[in-house]
């Protein structure tokens, strides 16, 4: 699923449409995997999306959001079907506010497209994992 998210993100980006499928997937993963497995997925995502030799602040912030979602899940113990979309929305807000607050305010349309795409894909990942766990 993470590979699919990576492929989709790069395919959309090549068409000039930026949707954070990878972040949405990692946030949902935070509700289904333990912290060690989640760290493996996060580091794999960082390896794939990091576009330069040095680690950037942007990628660092990106990698912290799924960990924050994991902590949120452990501390508040909401039912995952309610907590996962809340975590995706909060995660996307945090990412935009931390990396490019000015661009976020000036270009809210692209944020909404990003968020909507992330919520839809995150929902698909969530239901797939939910079914696999129930089976």
């Amino acid at each position: 699923m993470l590979l699919l998210a990576c492929a989709l993100q790069f395919w959309f980006a090549s068409a000039g449409v930026f949707i954070n499928f990878i972040l949405a997937t990692l946030v949902v993963f935070a509700f289904y995997f333990d912290i060690w497995e989640l760290l493996v997925f996060i580091l794999f995502a960082v390896l794939v999306i990091n576009w330069q030799p040095a680690m950037s602040v942007d990628i660092f912030v990106f990698s912290l959001i799924p960990i924050a979602a994991y902590a949120f899940h452990k501390v508040f113990a909401w039912t995952p079907w309610m907590a996962a979309p809340v975590a995706i929305v909060c995660g996307f807000f945090l990412l935009y506010l931390a990396i490019a607050p000015a661009a976020f305010l000036a270009n809210s349309g692209s944020f909404l497209i990003d968020l909507l795409g992330g919520l839809i894909f995150g929902g698909m990942v969530f239901f797939t994992l939910d079914r696999l766990q129930g089976a």
Partner: peptide
């Protein structure tokens, strides 16, 4: 985790290769 961390910091080109493979 250790392998991925090493790749990220010392051999990021593997990540670019995966990315290139996944890109259209």
């Amino acid at each position: 985790i250790a392998i991925l961390a090493l790749l990220i910091f010392f051999a990021p080109s593997y990540g670019w290769a995966i990315r290139s493979w996944l890109s259209p």
